[in-house]
Write a protein that binds this DNA or RNA. Structure first.
Lengths: 253, 253
DNA sequence: TTCGATTTGTTCGTATGTATT
DNA sequence: TAATACATACGAACAAATCGA
């Protein structure tokens, strides 16, 4: 008998330690939608019984997912699937700051909500074959802060995942659009990658942002991913580089 | 007796749990230079005896510092103070990518190494009073990749911490300048904050980067910090935005 | 308001596995 | 091979937070 399998499928003699297998199993359940954003997971003892391991091992697995902001533990209540709060960002996903260093948390205004097919470039980014005419939803928006247009915001979403998204839901969404993705479509963004470019404002951008054509702008292209690296959103933000900049922090303590 | 103190000073009845106190004590030892970059810490059992707690508690404290890349644990060997490798970045501190998405890991060329006093703005960033005429070291460099000048790189260092730094040490430093800071001056960078601006190339920048004056550039201003939030370096990098861009990733798994 | 049941947080002791020297 | 050191795993106890009776 070269290996021992518990009924739950965890492999005691496998290459990965049990707590990492627990982590993967929980991630799989999340990807399968068994536990949706905001919902409570079974208690640690229940999970221990289900997976056939000690509570200690469950805690180690959950601990890693909590450190990654995938799960949230609340003493006395339980363990929950992390949500994007409606009122503030779960991550510091908004990196726009003004010249004084103050973080800008702008509101949004929806200009258009249209359905179409992905361009080859968009399909490639969203993980679809370039010639598949993948149905997408396009959102054209502007970011507004204290009455000023801070940035243009263009979003491309695969229609297959976001079929239930409506213009009204986008308009009603408060600070964080990703909360609407969760509530309306069950899509949970857990990772983003951004490419920051500098460019000169096009005539259209200049008009929207009320700046001069050819003045410097920052263009931020973001890919957002859900569980298991599945790409779910491509967005482009353009803003006046003479008024605003982009800020990041790296490293701990 | 409202509280109980072990001889090592850990407060059992304090507001913070023991493992967090262990974390703080270890951080203090690092800040005091008791264990220098690359050196081995006492074993977990020794630390447990020293602090008067169980090995489990020491492991919890060390675990948090290891997760922050402050310490490195090696099975069978011991726990070590993390180092900036000479050959590659400990963090993905280099965020410059080309149009094809390839990360640029450029070499450096030292143009000048001078000593002077901080401007008011520099003093403010480095945590000194603006009128103190704080002595600083200035490094003017260019980043070079495959024979091309990728970026200008200007660094300001407080002379008080970097008195032992020499132009030769900077020239000899391989990929990672922060390794030289460790080896030559015992300064360990553990956190950086970057502000990314877009601008139009000045005449001087254009000449160095071999681009046209007024073409778009990205200007990245970085503050680097060591233990306990002490600022130790201010650097500015400027590069051609038509060839290169800045990339970040956020979130887990 | 108080009390008790539930759930996670912290701490300890112990045993065994695995990498290093 | 043997000793050392960290990694994994289990069991147990109590603390702290939460919630409902």
């Amino acid at each position: 008998m070269p290996q021992k399998n518990t009924p739950a499928g965890l492999d005691v003699s496998g290459p990965d330690p049990l707590y990492k297998q627990v982590e993967q199993r929980i991630l799989q359940c999340l990807a399968d939608g068994e536990w949706k954003p905001g919902e409570q997971l079974p208690t640690e003892s229940q999970l221990a019984e289900r997976f056939g391991v000690a509570v200690f091992t469950i805690r180690a697995g959950i601990g890693e997912l909590a450190a990654s902001n995938i799960l949230v533990r609340k003493q006395g209540k339980g363990t929950f699937v992390a949500r994007h709060s409606r009122l503030r960002q779960r991550y510091q996903f908004s990196h726009i700051h003004d010249a004084a260093g103050r973080q800008i948390l702008p509101g949004r205004e929806l200009l258009s909500f249209t359905k179409g097919t992905a361009t080859a470039a968009e399909a490639a980014r969203l993980g679809f074959p370039p010639d598949a005419r993948t149905p997408v939803i396009r959102l054209a928006m502007i970011s507004v802060d204290e009455g000023k247009t801070v940035a243009t915001l263009d979003i491309v979403l695969p229609a297959r995942l976001f079929g239930s998204l409506t213009a009204a839901a986008v308009r009603n969404a408060q600070e964080n659009l990703y909360a609407a993705y969760q509530d309306e479509c069950g899509v949970n963004v857990i990772r983003v990658e951004e490419h920051i470019h500098a460019a000169l404002a096009s005539a259209a951008e200049a008009k929207t942002l009320k700046i001069r054509t050819g003045s410097p702008v920052l263009r931020v292209e973001r890919m957002a991913y859900t569980y298991r690296g599945l790409p779910v959103e491509f967005r482009t933000r353009v803003f006046d580089a003479t008024q605003y900049h982009y800020r990041t922090v790296e490293g701990g303590i």
